[in-house]
Amino acid sequence: MLAALQLSRRFTGPVAGVAIAVILVILLQANGFTSTLIVDMLVYAIVAMSLDFLGGYTGLISLGQAGFLGVGAYGVAIAEAHFYPPWAAVGVGLGAVLVLGLVLGVVAVRVKGISFVIITLAMGQVLWGLAFQWVGLSEGDNGIPVSILPSIGPYDLNNALTLRMTVLVVFAVVALLLITFTRSPFGLSLRGIRSNETRLAALGYRTGLHRYLAWVIAVFFTGVAGVLYVFVNGLISPTTMDFSANGFFVLMVVLGGLGSIWGPALGAVVIVLFQQELSIYLDRWQTLMGLTLIAVVLFSPGGLWGALRAAGRRRDALIARLQETS
């Protein structure tokens, strides 16, 4: 019994990680509904994890994240519509979102807490408004299609399998980078900012700069997801970045568990299932989703990941008890 529990403590994480990776690689081989669903989940998970990096670690919850996904996606689509070669279009998308993140960050990190939420919400709505109203640039409600994807030598994103694998790899890289950041001294300082910024500043940390960096990182990775999004879907339209889309990302993070990186990825999986599966059987799926968010806030502030962690802690406590008795 004790040995089994100790094995579980040691290997659950790595084994689950490897198993999920293997399952994803296998499932992504075949064309069809399942692989499309998984790719959607992975793209949204990148956004959710970026949002969590900002919200869960620094306490800055952005309600405008879908806007930056839109900027990455529109950057690519508009560049391609102006006959830029595909790789250059990717550069335009990523460049646009990076510049925007750098500029808007100056405004955004001036405030914290509720004001930050409100301001990012306003930013997101404005970006949505541009996509919706600036028809000359964005084609308005119709959106812009993207049909030619980048390729170099034998590596060709126009090949569906290559594209799916690329999404998986980008997801893994972003996840590992974000995890690395959170465990670095920089990540520790971010957590310090969330719990007591004044104290951290008194210790000599440049907290404003750290918040700014966290913002730029989160915005940029969201833009990366935007580029993948437009390649996967072949179209970007204003609905992708409307108010309800912004809410969905926050929902993913809160449902998955703020401040855990993997939790929000799990949240993305659940929400995409809600959106694409449950909506087939249940007209009022949005009601159910809203109620889910309220229920999580009320009863399980740690989200799904928090519940898993709690189970892990119970196991560790059991190990400790068994060790004492033996």
Binding site: I61, S244, Q286, M289, L291, L293
Partner: peptide, 15 residues
């Protein structure tokens, strides 16, 4: 929490 719960409420009311 209040902010997030009222965000959830938007989906319910709208729907």
């Amino acid at each position: 929490s209040e902010l997030l719960a009222t965000l959830g409420l938007i989906y319910v009311i709208d729907d």
